[in-house]
Every structure is written in C-alpha cells, then in structure tokens.
Simulated scan of single mutants.
Amino acid sequence: MMVFRTLSDDHSDLAHSPLLRAALLTLHYAQDHGAIGLTQTKAFKRVFVHWAVKHFDWPGSGADGMFRYNKVINEYEFPPLEVLHYLLITLRLGRHFKGEFRLTKRGAELAQSPGRLLAELIPFFILDIDHASYARFAERPDGKWDVWMNVINVEADHGTTDHALFAAFYGDGHDRGNVGWREMAAFSSCVLRPLEWAGLLIETDEERAGKHVHHIFKTPLWRSALNLDIDGMLQPVPVQ
C-alpha cells in the first residue's frame, strides 16, 4: 500500500519538488497575466516557454545551458514544461479557450494551496503518466510502482547508486557500458527521473576511476509525503 499525505501549505519540505514549484509558477503567471498564449498546435507560446526556462530553475536544464546553443526554445524542447502543461489540463487546473491557457476555478484555488496542489499533482504524475512517452526510448521497465517504491524506500534510505537500485530489481551484470544499457536507461527514465521531478529523490554525480557514478538519495519530502508498507523497517535518520 502506498499513501500520499497532504502536507500543510507552509511545510518546508514542499520546496524539494521541482514539479510543484513549476506548477505554482505557471498558475501564478496565468493569474497575473490573465492567460498564457497558445500556438496553433495548442502549445505554450515561446514567450512563456522562455520565461519558464528562466524561472523554473529545473535541475539539469538551467537557462544558461539551454540558451547557450538554442536562442529559440519551443515547448516540446523543454520536456518538464510539456509534461506540466498536460498535467494541468488533464487535472482540470487549466483549460484551453480561444487560443489561450486559462485557469479554472479549481486551478485558481490550488494555486494558493501548495500542500493540496502537491497532493493532486504528484500521485497522478507518478502513477498515471506514461513516462516512456517523453523519454528518449520507448522501452518500459518491467515492474509496478508499489514494488519499486517500497524497495527504493529501503535501498535508498541512506543513499545508494542507480546501478545498485537497478540490480536490486533486475540483477547485476547490467551497465551503461555494456549490452544492458538500454534496460538501465529505461529504468532511469521511467522510474528514477519521475521521482526526481516530483522531488522525492535527488541525484548527485561523482567521477570515480574515469566513470560517472550516479548517487541516489531520498529527499525530506519522501519521508514527509509518503506512507509505505515497510516504513517501520527503516532505521531512524540520524539527527545532524
């Protein structure tokens, strides 16, 4: 069983979620400007895409890096915004009307309630989205979210690596440098990355013996927002 708790609007752990931060910025922008302009294909217009790239402060997709080689960026070239746009429409927090994205009454209400917005946004994003649809590859890893989440809950409790997590589910012998790299990439794209975007995991890189090692840690938001079957088996986190 996996339960997502609703946190208070002033809970400090909400700050760990890039997706929540992006959603709040988008909803507030639409409120402040009355609407967000859409292209003929119903994507956000470039003026807002550029604003989002600059203000989302998205991990791994900072404004300096994205604008270094691309002076013009479309919505589909900034996947976090494309996914967020879909989420806001599907959850009926916004709607398309006469060439614009406008907030619904519900969207306007949740824009003022970060805790409730997280409780609406994150479970749907993690559990109901086809994460392979915006990944580089169409492959999907075998498994279910309740198993992935409970095992990660234990394996990453005091930090682990992406390789060790993959091995916990699918066995050792896979590596980004051998024939198993596609399976590892699918697991990273469809399991680890959504959890990072949600703000439940954080990844750091280290170069060791000429190879990049990807360390995975649970964020404080994981502990405050999730209630999982095996929480009682975990050792208390040492107080610094």
Rank of each mutant, 00 (worst) to 15 (best):
E183C: 03
D130P: 03
Q40Y: 10
A52Y: 06
W197E: 07
V147S: 10
A63I: 01
Q40G: 14
N153M: 03
K45Y: 06
L38N: 04
R46P: 00
R5Y: 08
A156S: 09
R182S: 07
T104V: 12
F48D: 01
R46I: 06
G180N: 05
E207K: 11
V239K: 15
P114I: 06
D10V: 00
V213H: 10
S189M: 02
M2I: 15
D13M: 00
P141W: 01
W145Q: 08
A132E: 06
R95L: 13
V151Q: 08
A15D: 02
A225G: 04
T41R: 12
H158D: 05
D205C: 10
G171T: 05
K105D: 15
H215R: 11
A35K: 12
S61D: 13
V213C: 07
G177E: 08
N153K: 05
L200R: 14
L110I: 06
W222N: 03
E75C: 07
Y29A: 10
L103S: 10
D130S: 09
L228F: 08
V237E: 15
N74I: 00
S189I: 02
W145F: 15
G62A: 11
A164V: 03
R68F: 07
G115C: 04
F101V: 03
L87G: 01
T204E: 12
D162R: 15
P236T: 07
V72E: 13
F4M: 13
H214W: 05
G159Y: 12
W222E: 05
F56N: 02
M233R: 11
L24P: 04
D142T: 12
H33F: 12
E75L: 05
V237Y: 08
Y69H: 11
V72R: 12
G99E: 13
N150V: 06
F4L: 10
V179S: 13
A108S: 09
K42E: 14
